[in-house]
Amino acid sequence: MPVLEITNLRKNFGGVKALDGLDFHVDKGEIVSVIGPNGAGKTSFFNIITGYFSPDEGDILFNDVNIAGHQPHEITELGIARTFQNVRLFPNMTVLENVMVAQHCRTTTGIFGTLLNTPAFRREEREIEERAKEVLAFFGKRLKGYRWDQPAFVLSYANKRRLEIARAMATMPELILLDEPTAGMNPMETAELTDLIRQLRDDRGYTVILIEHEMRVVRDVSDRVVVLDHGVKIAEGDYKTVSHDPNVIEAYLGRPSEAHNA
């Protein structure tokens, strides 16, 4: 049963066709990778799903609700979380606060509860903190202990990426969109994150869409791979089929000059 079903998605930025009639779907519990050369429209695809841009044309059905044109916070509330290609943490909030604030749409205490310090408010604050710690524990030793109270900007690049994922998990989504989560990581960290991505699905039950340039990661975790180029889907299937597809090879290798200057 598809969690997300997208038909005929179109988006133009001026003359640039970022997405050109894309059809796409993810089933529950699937890990789908979206790959393609630079400027293929992958990030734009995420931005449209999560409401940062509204599509020019096309439907986006999330659990049979059309979310095209909804506000980003509404979409998060419906159950789609994302990370950003260029890390967008709250740099001066602590690691723990970053994950606590991510539960905003799952919690309810308003101003009056806060001011009156009601038992419900205190219980909820405690729950928010516990849940934040629980989510951070997913990353093992990486984001534990003294790190909780460190401001996010002091983290290493790899840890920033992990914290972004933790924040996405804390919004309690059904579907997680990861935009190049291993960018900037060394091979060991990449391998570790590859395992975690699999665990996101196997242990936590999230459905995952992954944008990734690192082909080893794509090969190791994907149930299915979708290849975009110039906003068009040029191939789809398991990693092996796709990696041997002549269209894909041409998209990546055939025009090296284009791949370089993006």
């Binding site: 940062y52 980003p72 994302r82 001066n92 806060t114 919004t171």
Partner: peptide, 27 residues
């Protein structure tokens, strides 16, 4: 009271990065 609450955290997030705050489900 507001500073260290859900509301206060949302304000801080908003000040730090508005787009990211929206992705956290903050209206």
């Amino acid at each position: 009271r507001l500073q260290a609450s859900r509301t206060g955290r949302a304000w801080t997030a908003l000040r730090e990065d508005e787009d990211a705050a929206e992705a956290m489900g903050i209206n």
